[in-house]
Structures are given as structure tokens and as C-alpha cells.
Simulated assay, not measured.
Amino acid sequence: MVTGNLFLVQLYIWDDEMDSPIYSDLPSNLQAADRFRHRTIKHLEKYLGSETPKDIYPNKFYNNQERENEPLRPELERAIASFDSAGEALAPVLSKGERELFYRELISSIALTRSEQRTEQCGNAPTIEEYIAIRTWTSAVKPVSALSEYMHEIQLGDIVRSDPDVKAIFEENAILVYLANDMFSLRRELTFPFYCNAVAVLYHKHQNLQTAVDGVYSLIRESFQRFEEAAKRLFDRYPEKRDILEMFIDGARVMVTGNITWSKKIRRYKLGIEKFDGTTSITI
């Protein structure tokens, strides 16, 4: 749907301000980035919620940021305001359960970028477990997944939507998307360099690129297995909702394959490959 596409555009605009030194100085300035996160969340409240969940965005930190007084920077405010079109379109049409889920997933993604930024600034490579725990949120795949019902014009209902295996589909879908993306984006990200990449994290541990790539591939296979097991349990548990569950789960699969297709073609990763036909090798 057009609104879903608008939201994806907003995510890229916002993310480039937050973590790309090419476009912004926020990656090297934690306090300025905190204020940017705070203003973003306050802006999103207007569309999606009356109050930010304090278990996601701590009360003390939240109030401290509210007292900050700094000159506004037009480029940052434009990045925040880029959400307006999607927010105005989504807020009236999402059910209460959909809106609450989308809001929590989105706020969680924004809040956890702070942990990711602190990891980068400390200069110490995380373990792969620490990386996955943070990146599963900051990849922003989960808030996109939270719009799946809206985009497919289906209703899972509150009981199915809160089922642990639906949450597992969200979780594994995020892992599959960002791990595959990490393979393609490694060259670009090492330009900075960042540890915000599973291949880089495993290379730091093993000091061997092939071992690192093989490790990421193993993580992808394990995640795929968990995804399919969760899908089977959902089909078994809710046979009366098989049709809409198939749309929901197939939509998650398409997010993964679509992201791989996008990663192959996008110029920002500088792969320089016109055709992926099984005969091409990529030197990272």
C-alpha cells in the first residue's frame, strides 16, 4: 500500500540522520542524538499514542530530554516531519490493537538506537549475541511487520496478534532481513568503520572473513528454521484462520526476499554487479 511505502521512506530518511556520518554529525554526538530521538518520539505521540511507554523509553531519561533547550536544525526537523504523511494516513485506519503494536515496535526501534550508538562510540566490538539483541530492534523491521495486517487488508484479531508465535514470526523475520542485508552492506559499512554488522562482529572474533560469512549464513539458516516452526504451530493452533495466516506469513517471507533483491540492486552498497546469475563472485 502507498501508506506503507511512505513509512518505509520515512524510516530511511530518519535512519540516515541517525547513523550515517555521510549525512549527519549525530553518530558522533550522543547527546544531540538523544534529543533527536526524544523529539521524534514526542512527534509520533501525536499520531499513535497519548503517552510514550516508559518501560521502553525510561522516565528519567525522557524527562531530562524534555528540559533540553537547543536551537532546532532544519534538516533534523524535516527528518522527523517526514513521518507526517504516513502518520496522518495510518492513525485513523489502524485498529486499536494494531496501532498499539505498531507504536510500541516503532518506539522500541528508536529507543534501542541509543544502545547501538553507545556500542559504536565505545569502540569495543559486541559479541554476536549482544549484536543480535540490539539489532533485532534497531533494524526497524518489526514496526514494518506490525503493519502487515493493514498492508494485506486482514485482521488477525487481538488473541492471534498477541500469540507468542506471531511475535516469533516478527522476531525471526527481522533477523533474516538484517543478516542478509549485512552480507551485502558490509563494504559500505566498513568504510566508516562500524560494528553494526554481523559479518564485522564475527570477523573481529575469528579474524577470518570466510569464517565470519559462514557464521552469518549459519545464523540465517537457524533463524529460518525457527520461523518455519513458528508458522507451523500457528497453522495447527488456528486452523479456522489458515487463509489470513498464510497471507501474514507469506508477507513476512516476501519482506526477506524483497530486501535481498533490493540489496543486490541498490547503488549505496557499491556492489558493481549487474546480474546475479550464480556465476558471479563478490570480493568484500
Rank of each mutant, 00 (worst) to 15 (best):
L44C: 03
S115N: 13
N181K: 05
R99A: 15
K42G: 07
L112A: 01
I132K: 14
T279K: 13
E75L: 09
P74E: 11
D34F: 03
H38W: 05
N124V: 14
I13M: 04
N64C: 13
D158F: 03
S82D: 14
D16F: 02
A168I: 00
G258M: 03
S95Y: 02
Q155W: 05
D84A: 13
F248T: 05
I134H: 00
I266K: 13
F192I: 04
E68L: 07
C196L: 01
F61C: 12
I107Q: 06
L112P: 00
M183P: 04
E70L: 14
R118D: 02
Q155T: 10
D15E: 14
S148K: 10
G87S: 09
E246S: 14
T138S: 07
R253G: 01
E17G: 03
L94V: 11
P27Q: 06
Y12E: 07
I244E: 11
Q207C: 11
T211W: 06
A33Y: 00
D158E: 10
V199A: 13
A111D: 07
H204M: 13
I22D: 14
K270S: 15
I282K: 07
K60C: 07
K232H: 08
A86H: 08
R187S: 13
G272T: 05
C196R: 00
E229Y: 02
L271A: 04
A231I: 01
L30G: 05
